[in-house]
Design a binder for these strands. Sequence first.
DNA 1: CAGCCGAGATGAAACGATCCAAAAATGGAC
DNA 2: GTCCATTTTTGGATCGTTTCATCTCGGCTG
Lengths: 350, 350
Amino acid sequence: MSSHQAGKRPTIVDVARHAGVSTAAASKVLRDAYGVSPEMKEKVKASMDALGYRPLTSARGMRRGRTHTVAVVVADLHNEFSSLLVEGIRRECERQKYRLLVAPAGSGKDAQNRMVDDLIDRGMDGIVLISPVGTDEELEVTAKTIPVVVLGRHGASLDFDSVAADDFAGANLVVDHLVSLGHRRITYINHTTDGRNDARLPEEVRVRGYVDAMIRHGLGDAIDIIQSQWSQEGGEESGKMILARTERPTAVFAGCDIAAFGVLTAMWDADIRVPEELSVAGFDNIFTTSLAPVSITTIDQSGLDMGTAAGRLLLERIDGRAEAVHTVLRPVLVARKTTAAPAQAKVHQP
Amino acid sequence: MSSHQAGKRPTIVDVARHAGVSTAAASKVLRDAYGVSPEMKEKVKASMDALGYRPLTSARGMRRGRTHTVAVVVADLHNEFSSLLVEGIRRECERQKYRLLVAPAGSGKDAQNRMVDDLIDRGMDGIVLISPVGTDEELEVTAKTIPVVVLGRHGASLDFDSVAADDFAGANLVVDHLVSLGHRRITYINHTTDGRNDARLPEEVRVRGYVDAMIRHGLGDAIDIIQSQWSQEGGEESGKMILARTERPTAVFAGCDIAAFGVLTAMWDADIRVPEELSVAGFDNIFTTSLAPVSITTIDQSGLDMGTAAGRLLLERIDGRAEAVHTVLRPVLVARKTTAAPAQAKVHQP
DNA sequence: CAGCCGAGATGAAACGATCCAAAAATGGAC
DNA sequence: GTCCATTTTTGGATCGTTTCATCTCGGCTG
């Protein structure tokens, strides 16, 4: 045995004995329940901090079923955008005196499901899932057991709440911005999902938004989609492909910021000046887009707001709300330095 | 009440009844304890997955005192480097069938201490603290209650383990690298800690490493330290200060990567080419240093290894080890594209 | 065949809290 | 001073699991 058991932790029984009252009384004081006289309250409280007593959350949760703890399941922590979401949830939890724990589950479906089970077994009061890969059916099974909020995925289940940004509107904003600068040949970099092809995935919604906006501007003929991956490598490759063409676009709309970084790398290596020779826009407004030497034009989904919204919904659910709520947040364009009017373009539109 | 209690979760009593055995027997099967016949084992296991039974970790932990769960306390999740550390810890925990939860506590001392208490109350088996702000004395009090590993802070307590990178050696590597490229005027950007001035803080160790290396190379006269903050703003301001000088350095060693980004921004804005006109080096090897259009030379502390080391130490402690272990890991230089020989320099050294 | 042994199985007491119903104290009203 | 209505206080059951001491039962030994 290690030496950590040294001074046994005081229990509520110790407090009661020290104060000369019953444990039931001590418990009431602890919870400020009804039916305890001021002097008893005083006495017990004094004993509590004389002994340095702190109730054991797990023992509490056992009878009462509440631990005042919620968890957010996330694939990994490297994604800056999910950090923002987490921070939003955390703030809302803090405001309502709940504790938030972050559970990194990996990107596999089984791993995520196992993590959810483990969190339930560990007495969480509710769970937020960030862009989970499981099917809606799987999530609904979970949601019958414990309050669940899905963050960052479009959908409309009756059993769990959801919060997502309007990716369609976001993609529209980018195209509108580029067109208003005078661009017509705007290439989009898509994230190709191998296998599952869920219309509610952000990537699907964004590409639809791009296509729709192009058509709306009468640029249906200029629609140009590169099937790639939303990673720095995917962006870089796409950039090189574009450079290899005889007729290049004047603007590239990378579906996410990481990919935009990749495109910039490709341009830098080829000595193409951004935005003079090519405009580049991202999506997500991750922290480093503002930090880059040439700050990147992007779409801000206001992750903080999404997070707090999710936190609020979750705590409402825990509190008893029965009907599902689905929130869609409106993104905004953050115009920075990677987009500008194209070299020799008529600024006026047809 | 919400509708989540629908199908009551099966307990070990249900399993026992279903299998027609005592709960004690069921419990033994669950833990594969000694003294259970093959046929009983079979029967009970069948009942378990017939009912979809999963033991409640908190109830278990209550009697046995172990929940197979550990937590890592982190100020916030925006720091990419701590994400790496967390990932390392997670892998080690997974290997040993432990669950890791991440607890974002904020940067305040009180907030961190409160978080640690709450984690103990929630039945964690052990805790890793990433660059905690509390004093060693406070940490020792905690470490008497629960196994603790401190990550990213130099120190040598008898009550808790620690893992840190050799910041001194890291700073040496950068200076050696720059000098070998032919630089002599190397400016260092320091992080000024207002108030506490702990010699074991990374920033203190790094600046000592810089000074020491400069002297070792006979460049004591060229020592030039800018007191600033390790943030993108701090880096940018420092960059501007350098530009305003009549005699500029040929290389800047920003104490951390974020600050290096700031320096690059300042240079970009002033049309100074990096590395042609100025070399810039960072420290930490955060993910985006490789991703930036001009990838940044930096020091890799191999956060993954630090994390797994911390995880291993923690689990050993939980397992009973009594003596403290302090690990220092050797960092390596990652030479990328922001450093090169200065414009008109003799490449040979005196 | 009495006695012993050890492996398997079990009932009940923990663990640290909450919660319910019942007991004790308080305070008026008559 | 008795009686009733409140308020305070309490004992003990309970949550889901482990653990401990005990019990059973077949097989061996002597």
